[in-house]
Structure formats: C-alpha cells, structure tokens
Design a protein around this nucleic acid. Structure first.
Lengths: 170, 170
DNA sequence: CGAGATATGTCAGTCATGTTGACGTATCTT
DNA sequence: AAGATACGTCAACATGACTGACATATCTCG
C-alpha cells in the first residue's frame, strides 16, 4: 500500500497520470464505504416494509422541511413517476404530509409527521453510529479531506444544490 | 434540529456526540459523490447494452485476474443467482473467460478477454478522469483523509477482503 | 476408500426501483 | 388571455436484486 504521492521521479507531473492504483483505491473504498453504510439501515427499513428509496425521501425531507416536490426530484435525480410512488406510500403510512405552498400555490411542501420524524431519527442514528466511528478513528484532519475530495466529485452543476441543503429555507 | 454537539470548547468529547450536521454532511457528500461518479459511466455502458452490475464484475475481474466466482460473490455481496446471470452475459459477449482452477478443480478462475479488458479500460478512464480531478483539487493531504475515513466505514469483517484487492494473487 | 463439505450452476417465481411518453389540471407570469 | 410551470397519473416495461431448492463435480479427512 505504498506511498501514493506524486511519481517520485516527477514532482509536478500531470494530474492525468496519477497512478492507476490511487484511482482504483478510491473507487473501491467509495464503493465499499457507501454500500456498507447503506446496508446499516436495511434491516430497520425492512421491519417497516420500506426500501431505500423511501429512506432517501425521508432523509431529504427531514433535512429540509417544506422542501417542494420539484426540489426533491432534482436531489434524487429520478423521474416523477418513481418519486410519486414513493411519496404516495409515505403519505399512506402517515410518515409524510404535504401542504400547499404559500407563495406559489402550485407547489406542495413536504414535511415529516411526528411518526415520520421518529422513523427518520431512528435510521439516522444508525448512520451516525457508523460515520462517527469512522470520523473518530480517522481524526478531524482526515474528515476535512474526506469532505473535500467528495465535494470535488459532485459536478459543478449540482454543487450549489448540495450545499444549499445546509441552509434553512428561511 | 438544533445542536446536539458536545460543547465546542471540548475537543476530546465523546464520539457519540459529534454534531449532527457533520454527520449529515458526510451522508450527503457520500451519496452525491458516489452516485455522480457512477453516473459517469452509465452512458458508455448503455452503448454496450450493459448495466452497472456488469461493470462491477468487469471491474473486479480486471483488478484481480484469476479471481474465483466465490471471491467475486463475496466482494459484490449478491446472490449466486444474480451473479450467474451477469457472468453468463459477459461470457456470451466474449468479455470474460473462465478456466478451471489449477489447485482446486472445482473453482472457476475469471479473466477478461482482450475485448473485455479494452471495455473495462474505457470505463475506467471515465472514473479516472473524475477522481483525478477531485484528487488534484483537494490535494494529497485530503486524499489520505478521504481514504482513511472510508476505510473506517468498511466493517472489520470485510476490511481484509478489500485490502487484499491490492495484492497480486501470485 | 468413502462420507461429508465445498464450489459452482441452475430452476421458477417474486420484488423494488427505476425508465419512457403521453396527458390533465391548477396556477403563475407576462 | 396565452403560454409556461408544478404536480399527478396512466400503461407498459427493464434491471437487478431476492428466495429456496436441487444437481454436479471435486476436495478433504477419518
């Protein structure tokens, strides 16, 4: 597992010639890290008869209450049809409620019910457990690097949308 | 949902009390980073009439020639049935060949054909482009942190398997 | 040598989640 | 008043996963 730094022979070498192994390492860790993290909540979801698609919707609605359907569609990057099914199921189970937008009455604003909030919190607790452990083991410096690299993987066109999750809707 | 964190003043506080926002940021970046990276190769795959499942198999076979079916099953963490379908399609398209294990004749060792290797290389080039750019922007220090955190997300029980990808089978 | 474990393949049926393309209604904007 | 936008919904279909059972060849060990 060697030193991944720039080619020893050529300190300023072009980014295009990063060693293949460095790239493969990233691909693999991203794959295993992501899939294993999501696995962490599958059991909990299965108990409720829900799938990962439902979790993603719950997650983003929890993250940004009064999210519109259109915003959620852009975040998930799936079709209206697919999202419609998921939202209908969440609504039928009283996990999500919608209200008509105040500024634009065409919009539907999404919110979790108390029950939905409780479920999301339970699922989030699993994610927190895993990610916290990884953060603590790696240390604060590493966490910053982790974020930094991942930000670079999000295409320019999506970056603002992702960052906006951290703001209140006001 | 307010600040659940430890006092900002207490650097060594318990891992259980990392601020919620730090965790959510990780979840989101991991989600967007992973999905956007995999999106990068979907178009190429679609041209060949293949899906992501095929790519994952191609990837790991390229990574470790003479991989056995059982090892690939453990890496992908899917069922024999699912993998069987994928391998059959790759075999039918002359992208993958199998040979009987020399040491254990029950095993089938998997390898890419020249054609399979060429396709994998083309797909890998897309991944390299994206990841290289992210690495370069973030810098070497960040890349190490990125790896370090992701390693922490892989459960102990899988870690050896993931690290072993970097070794030759000899 | 023979019994049991292991590596692989395969059957049939099902499910979750995504897709396309068309169309309808309410509402906003100009 | 006309056109754009936000949302919902129809039918039909694709992909990739699942379960559980069973078959075959081969290895390992007593």
């Amino acid at each position: 597992m060697t030193d991944i730094s720039r080619p020893a022979t050529s300190p300023g070498a072009s980014p295009l010639f990063l060693r293949e192994d460095e790239i493969r390492r990233g691909v693999e860790l991203l794959y295993f890290g992501y899939t294993r993290l999501t696995n962490a909540i599958d059991q909990e979801l299965a108990k409720q008869g829900l799938g990962r698609a439902h979790h993603r919707a719950l997650y983003f609605i929890a993250r940004q209450p009064d999210l519109t359907v259109g915003e959620l569609l852009r975040l998930l990057a799936i079709t209206k049809q697919s999202l419609g099914r998921v939202l209908k199921e969440l609504h039928d189970r009283d996990l999500v409620v919608t209200k008509t937008g105040a500024l634009d009455r065409r919009q539907k604003l999404l919110r979790l019910t108390d029950q939905g909030g409780a479920l999301e919190a339970e699922l989030f607790a699993q994610l927190r457990e895993r990610l916290s452990a990884a953060y603590v083991t790696a240390g604060q410096e590493s966490v910053s690097g982790f974020w930094h690299v991942l930000e670079g993987l999000v295409p320019e066109s999506d970056r603002q949308m992702v960052f906006d999750l951290r703001k209140d809707k006001s």
